[in-house]
Structures are given as structure tokens and as C-alpha cells.
């Protein structure tokens, strides 16, 4: 008997947003965990994009198509409107060209899905109120060694999407793998947003 692989909770939530038989582009796909799951359970086809060689080799070992490239240089090589979904999971907060990647996601895909650590989470606010930079489960770095250069709150991200003419079709927050419905921008440490062209 095989035990099904437990998908990371945020990836499981993303997977639940993706319809069977569709084409998915997973940006910053790591070792291809999400795409392997989607391929197996939802007959989804597509590609991952990853800069790190270990991730690329991990994808190849799982049989996941992966294109090695730096997301900061955009998605040249991918045709407009060639994917049903473009996923950017826990990556945007460490990217330099945030607006450019949102534009690229809207260009190549019909639906975008972005997940990021919600800086508005109460614990972050509390640590700031005490006069220190927040260090938490979703932002586990000190200010001097963090790769995160573009942290934002759920509300900030909503505003950014509207400025790109994108419409939010679904959003939720989670904490420790559980969905949070009450006061999301305060009680959720991880934000998931799904959006489309206006």
C-alpha cells in the first residue's frame, strides 16, 4: 500500500484552486512538488521555472518539466496566454522586480496565484510595536540576513493588483496550515491570492 505524499498545506490549497486537465506554469517551483502532485492527481501539464540547480535536478528526478532561468529577467520565451494558471509561491517577497513579474504573470496566464508571508500578521505588528524587526514562522530571518526585500500585507498586495488592472477572484489567509477566516490581515501569517485580468 502506498501512502500518498503529504503536500505542504499552502501548496495543497493552491492545488485545490486548479482545475483538472489545465496548463500550469509554476514560478520558483523548487523541486517540483506542486507540479508533480498536480500531474498525478489532476492530469495537469506544464512547466516549472527555477533558478537553483538543486531544484532543477529535483524536478528532473520527479519527471517534472523545468526551465532554469532567473525570474527577475521576466518570462521571455513563454507565449502570451499560453497557460491557464501561473503560480508564484512564497517567492515574490524576495524578488526585486515585483511589478514586472505581476505583468508577466498576467501576460502569459489566464489566472495568477501568488502566495506570500503576510506582514500584517499580528505577531509581526507586535514585534514592531516592541521596537524590533519581526522574526516569525513565515519570516524566519534576521533583518541583516533576510532574502526578503519586498514584504507586504494582504491589503498592500490587493492595492498592487488593482494598480495592474487585475481582479481578485479568491483570497485567503492561513496560519500553521489552517485556514483563517476572521480578521484575515491580522490573524493570517500566510496569504494566498488568486487573480485574473480585469
Amino acid at each position: 500500500m502506498s501512502i500518498p505524499n503529504e503536500l505542504r498545506p499552502d501548496l495543497a490549497r493552491i492545488a485545490s484552486w486548479i482545475a483538472p486537465g489545465t496548463r500550469v506554469l509554476d514560478l520558483g517551483c523548487g523541486d517540483g512538488e506542486l507540479l508533480a502532485h498536480l500531474h498525478e492527481h489532476k492530469q495537469v501539464s506544464g512547466y516549472g521555472v527555477e533558478i537553483d540547480m538543486a531544484g532543477v535536478i529535483g524536478c528532473v528526478a520527479r519527471g517534472v518539466n523545468v526551465i532554469q532561468r532567473d525570474l527577475e529577467s521576466g518570462l521571455a520565451g513563454f507565449e502570451a496566454n499560453s497557460f491557464d494558471y501561473v503560480v508564484l509561491s512564497l517567492t515574490i517577497q524576495s524578488m526585486r522586480h515585483v511589478k514586472a513579474i505581476i505583468d508577466e504573470m498576467l501576460r502569459v496566464g489566464r489566472t495568477g496565484i501568488v502566495t506570500f508571508p503576510n506582514f500584517g500578521y499580528w505577531e509581526n505588528r507586535y514585534q514592531l510595536a516592541l521596537g524590533r524587526m519581526p522574526v516569525s514562522e513565515t519570516i524566519p530571518y534576521q533583518w541583516y540576513n533576510t532574502p526578503n526585500i519586498h514584504l507586504c500585507t494582504l491589503n498592500d498586495f490587493d492595492a498592487l493588483l488593482s494598480s495592474h488592472g487585475a481582479r481578485i477572484t479568491s483570497q485567503m489567509v492561513m496560519h500553521q496550515g489552517q485556514r483563517i477566516t476572521f480578521l484575515p490581515n491580522l490573524l493570517g501569517s500566510l496569504a494566498l491570492v488568486r487573480f485574473e485580468h480585469q
Binding site: M53, C59, V66, I67, Q68, G77, F78, E79, S82
Partner: peptide, 21 residues
């Protein structure tokens, strides 16, 4: 090589691409 990859993506083929240091 990226030209080849782009053509394969445009043709919706199964492709992986690695750029080795």
C-alpha cells in the same frame, strides 16, 4: 539553447532546460 527551448515551449512540447555553471 534558449532558442531551442522557446521553440519547444511554443510547440507545447515536454521540455526541461538547464544552464550549467
Amino acid at each position: 539553447s534558449r532558442e531551442t527551448v522557446k521553440a519547444l515551449l511554443d510547440a507545447k512540447k515536454s521540455v526541461s532546460y538547464a544552464e550549467i555553471e
